[in-house]
Structures are given as structure tokens and as C-alpha cells.
Design a binder for these strands. Structure first.
Lengths: 332, 332
DNA sequence: ATTATTTCTGCAAACGATTGCAGAAACGAT
DNA sequence: ATCGTTTCTGCAATCGTTTGCAGAAATAAT
């Protein structure tokens, strides 16, 4: 790799002048400037990012910390982040933590010593409060998808409204008894979805159905098992709101296994609108999260924090994006 | 962040001694060593990776270049790479190229100036031959999933055998006429799958069915359209081998739309065994690629290249992993 | 006790960039 | 022609490490 001295030699100037031309902060005469640029072009010089970072500049790298890339909610968001980062000359480092706080802390230390410019975390949850300290230490941080407190800039879905819309929609289609198969209430997003569900029921004057609200289910397998269990115990709702698309897929499978039809006998809704959710049978009616857009916004916000900082005595910005109903064929 | 001088001061030694203790290359007396280690511990010192990189050391970072993270073949492989990298103290930078060679070249330049230690590419294909030059410039490179030539270390599936096994399995189940819905033949992996299909037919004394071998299809939509087209023109095979799971999903949908059953009227097989392929209806019989394992191997190989180099006059190592049949319910 | 080894430690020079400072060159004003 | 500005450029220090070299201290040999 060619360095700044070689460029300087080729242009017949000193290294400082080359640096000044490239950074543009300090004026250089037009004639030397063009000579330098020609040399840069000719040698295909690219400044060494480590040296720049060491000197106190930014390294233009951000750390993206997620639980597990195999969870399908993340790829689209990552794409939004990566595209936005690239557009601004930033590079993205990926870390999977499996929800493990120790692993996460190791990653954070490891990246900080690489002089990373900032972090996007999708791993915020109770037990990870140490994340809240980073901004105080001068590390720019944005939370994405999952929120923790109100002191860190965050990009999330309006989860309460998403579940509200879904429930209301099923009620409007004449579904009377709606079971809720939800994730763990320790994550605010599932708490919010539960609340949205309750609000829609209440507004419609419908009581919360007994034994038909299940929390703590996760993934396709749980959706299947929970629904199977429900049906075996004689609890047959005529609608199910699952708070993720894989859970909804498991639910549908359990319903089919019991010899019932979707949506003929039981309507089913999911949540997230993952890429494969239109390919299922029946195509899944669900609540869309604009993952790509959320990634874009989180990344924009982070780059803003890195480059402009956050003015003192300013509140954290909590960016709540609207949920959108995607109507397909799994509700009658 | 605390630096080596502060540690040196705390331990009452010079910075060089601290460095020597930590790298361990040069002997230091036990007594000073313990003093230094205590200071390191107390101040929670972590060497600045940029400074180390600048000095000529490795930065312990690898670049992972893929077409698009939303393509579901990648997340599992990425996970394998990331886990392996982490285990060896390496960090992974993610780049999506959308198959765009210019974008890819920009990424490569950008990462090289960050002193990245090596690359894993899943983007190799005709038109990207410039990738073959990198090893000659001293940049460690491994190809994953997609192969290009034989001069670069590569980790791929035994694609020919995968398609051979799939075809043979359908024949063994009494399927007579097997359509092939394949990707573009410019990628060797699709060429290989085609050859495996042909070999199985030939071995069984079955002729290649006319108008039922389609190349260049990609994704769910193409699978759907191609199958629909086939059925509308009166070409009704009693089996379909789709060379990706999403294509197979589209095929199944088209079959259902035509009022036919899977596998009752037509058997369908996919390829890849993506995470969602067990959740489909019917559950998809397919050929599994061990993506996670492939990621692990690619990463191990790359780290080996980085740390030990490749002995001169050595051939590239092409690591071909076995394909495995996953039998579910979409073949009669 | 003196010298010859061995073992350890500190100094200073790199790595490649940026930037304050001061000197050189160019210009205009008298 | 002299002086004062302005504009540009180079020197050298700096960021945080690592490492060759040489000197200091400790040990062994005479």
C-alpha cells in the first residue's frame, strides 16, 4: 500500500501538503493542489485509516450488536444499517451475543479498543443496564428494535398500536374469541403488544379470554406446542394473535394437525412481516415492522451522534415508527 | 481509554517493558512482570488495536463480502464465521454488494486501507475475476459457497452430488418425470446441480424430459411463475426438483393454485434446507447444505492463511462438503 | 577484587497520518 | 528599495504501540 510520503515525493512536496490538500481544512495554492491530486490519482493513494484513527480522527466504523443473525427480524434491519453506513463512508462490524451479557461485554471492550466510533444495540433488555453507561463515557449509542429506559436514542416500532390494529382488525372481521400467544413480558415490546391487544378488546367491550393469553413463547416450536396444548385442553378460540410470524406458523401447523382450517375455523395473525410470510399457506395476515427503514434511521442517528455529538441537556430521541397492517388470507 | 504509558507509570517501569510483558516475546524478570500485570489489571488496560496495526501487527479483523444478507443462505454461514472469528480474537466486517462489481471493488479498497487482515467472499462469479488477483498482492482470501477457478482456497458443497441424490431419491419413490427448475448456469454451483440431475437420470435410463428443464430462475416469484407456466402449457411432471427452497415454495404454491396436491399429484424437492423449510406445508424434502459448518471452515482456513501464510508452490485447498438429503413430506 | 557473561531494562526510532508553528515567498504600499 | 502583509509550505511533534540497540545491573568466573 502506498503511503503519504510516496505521494509527496511524486508530487515534489512535503507530506504535510498532501495531507492538507486531502483534508481540505487548510488552503493550498491551486497549482500545488493539482500536482498533488495528480499524484494521488496516479498512485491510487488511500490514506491509512488506522493512522488517521490513531491521530485522533474517526475510524468510520460502527459496531452492530444483535442477539443472533439467524433470527429473521435482523437481516432486513442490518441491510438498512449497512446501506446507510456505506453511503456515509462507514463500515459495519457485526456481533452476535446470543443474549449473553458477558459475551456482549467482551465484544464492547474488544471493539472499543479498536477505536470504534459508536454502537447500535438490538440487545437491550433488563439485565443489560450497563449499556446505559456508555453514552456517559463518550461512546455514541443507539438502540434499535428493543428499548431500555429513555436515556438512550432509540428506534422502535409502535408496538402497542401494532397489536391494537391487529386485534381490532380481527374483531372487525367477526372474530369473537382471540387468543394471544405472546413473547416474554420482560421485553417492553411484548408488554406493549399485550397492552395494545387489551386496549382493542376493552374498546370493543370484549373481556380478556381466560386461559387464552400465553406469554413467554418464542419461535416456531413454541407456537406449535402452545396452540396444540390449547386445542387439546378444549380451548378453541376462533382467532389467534401470535406476536411473531414464526409463532404464527407454528400455530397454523397445530391447527391443521387438529384437522381444522385456517381461516375457516380459526383466524391467525402474525407480527413482523418477515420475508417468508407471504409464501406460507395460507399467506399470513400480519403486522409489518419497517425493518429496513428502522435500520436506516438508527444508523443515521448514530452517525449524527458521532459527527455532531448530542447537545448537553438534550433529551434522548425516541423514534417510534408506525406499524402497518398487511392483510393476506389467514383471517376470515 | 488508558494507554501503555499510564500503565508503565503505575508499575514504575517503562512503556517498553509493559509491551514486552504483554506480547511475551522478550523475557522480563518475574518480579517486574507481576508488577506490570497488576497495573494492567488495576487500570483495565487494553492495547489500542489501531496503534498495534499501524506498527505492523495484525488488526485481527476480517472482511466478509456477500451479495445480500436478506438471502437466507447467508445468515447461518455468517454465524459460523462470526463464532469462529470471535474464538480466535477476530472481528468481522460485513459488506453487501448486490452482485455489483463496482460496489465490491469500493468495499475492497475501503477495507484494505483499514488494514484488514483478510477476506471471505461469497460473491465469486464470472465477471469478478479481479478477486483472483488479491492473493498475489499478499491479501489472504477464501471463497465460500461460490467457487471461481481453482487458485483460491474455497469451501463449497458437493453440489453435483446433492442434485444427484435428490433426483435419485425421487426416482426411487416412483416419480417418473422430473422437471428441473434451476438457477443461472453462469454460477458453477447451478451447473453442477444440473449435471448431478442428469447423471441420476442417465443412470436410471431415463431421458431428460423435454421442455421441463428451466435455468435462470431465482427466488420464490420465479419458482411460482415458471411452474405456473409449465402447468398452463400442459407440461405436468410428477416431480419437480427446484434448486433452492424458495423456488420450491413458489412451485408448491403454483401447484396448489392449479388445484393439485403435493405430493399426491406432484412431488417437490428443494435445495439448501433453510431454517423455514421445515415449517412449510407440506414440510419440504430438500438437500441440506451445512452452512454453519461451511462458515466455520472458511473462517478457520482464512485465519490459518493470515497467521501462517500459504507455503509457496502449494495448491489452493478446495474443501468440498457433503450434501445431505433431508426427507420430509413433499415427495410421495 | 576485577573482569567477563548473562540478564534485564530504558531510550529512541519507527509505523502513517495530522497540525501548530515558524520561515519563505510573493505581493502591495510607501 | 524597503517594509509590512498575506499566502503558502516544510519542519517537527504527536497519537499509542513495538523493537533494535546499548547501557545497567546482576551474576559467574578468574
Amino acid at each position: 500500500m502506498v503511503n503519504i510520503k510516496e505521494v509527496a515525493a511524486a508530487a515534489g512536496v512535503s507530506a504535510s501538503t498532501v495531507s492538507r490538500v486531502l483534508t481540505g481544512n487548510i488552503p493550498v495554492s491551486d497549482i500545488t493542489k493539482s500536482r498533488v491530486l495528480a499524484a494521488v490519482e496516479k498512485l491510487n493513494y488511500q490514506p491509512n485509516a488506522c493512522a488517521q484513527g490513531l491521530k485522533g480522527g474517526r475510524l468510520h466504523t460502527i459496531g452492530l450488536v444483535i442477539p443472533n443473525i439467524r433470527n429473521l427480524v435482523f437481516p432486513a434491519a442490518i441491510r438498512g444499517i449497512e446501506d446507510t453506513a456505506g453511503k456515509h463512508g462507514y463500515t459495519v462490524v457485526l456481533c452476535n451475543t446470543d443474549e449473553d451479557a458477558d459475551k456482549e461485554r467482551l465484544y464492547i471492550d474488544n471493539l472499543r479498543r479498536r477505536l470504534i466510533d459508536g454502537f447500535i444495540f438490538s440487545t437491550a433488555r433488563p439485565g443489560h443496564e450497563y449499556l446505559l453507561d456508555l453514552p456517559g463515557e463518550g461512546v455514541p449509542v443507539v438502540f434499535l428494535i428493543r428499548q431500555l429506559g429513555k436515556t438512550v436514542d432509540t428506534v422502535v416500532l409502535h408496538n402497542e398500536d401494532g397489536a391494537y390494529q391487529a386485534t381490532r382488525y380481527m374483531l372487525s372481521r367477526g372474530v369473537k374469541t382471540i387468543a394471544l400467544i405472546n413473547g416474554g413480558l420482560d421485553l417492553p415490546l411484548y408488554k406493549d403488544r399485550y397492552n395494545g391487544y387489551l386496549r382493542a378488546l376493552k374498546e370493543a367491550g370484549v373481556a380478556e379470554p381466560e386461559r387464552m393469553v400465553i406469554h413467554g413463547a418464542s419461535g416456531w416450536e413454541d407456537g406449535y406446542l402452545v396452540m396444540k396444548d390449547l386445542l387439546q385442553h378444549g380451548c378453541q378460540p376462533d382467532g389467534v394473535l401470535a406476536t411473531s410470524d414464526p409463532k404464527a406458523m407454528g400455530v397454523i401447523r397445530a391447527i391443521h394437525d387438529a384437522g381444522l382450517q385456517v381461516p375457516g375455523d380459526i383466524s391467525v395473525m402474525g407480527f413482523d412481516n418477515l420475508d417468508f410470510s407471504s409464501m406460507t399457506d395460507p399467506p399470513l395476515t400480519t403486522v409489518a415492522q419497517p425493518f429496513y427503514e428502522m435500520g436506516v434511521r438508527a444508523c443515521q442517528r448514530l452517525i449524527h451522534l458521532i459527527e455532531k455529538g448530542r447537545p448537553a441537556n438534550t433529551r434522548a430521541k425516541i423514534d417510534v415508527l408506525p406499524a402497518e397492517l398487511v392483510i393476506r388470507k389467514s383471517v376470515r
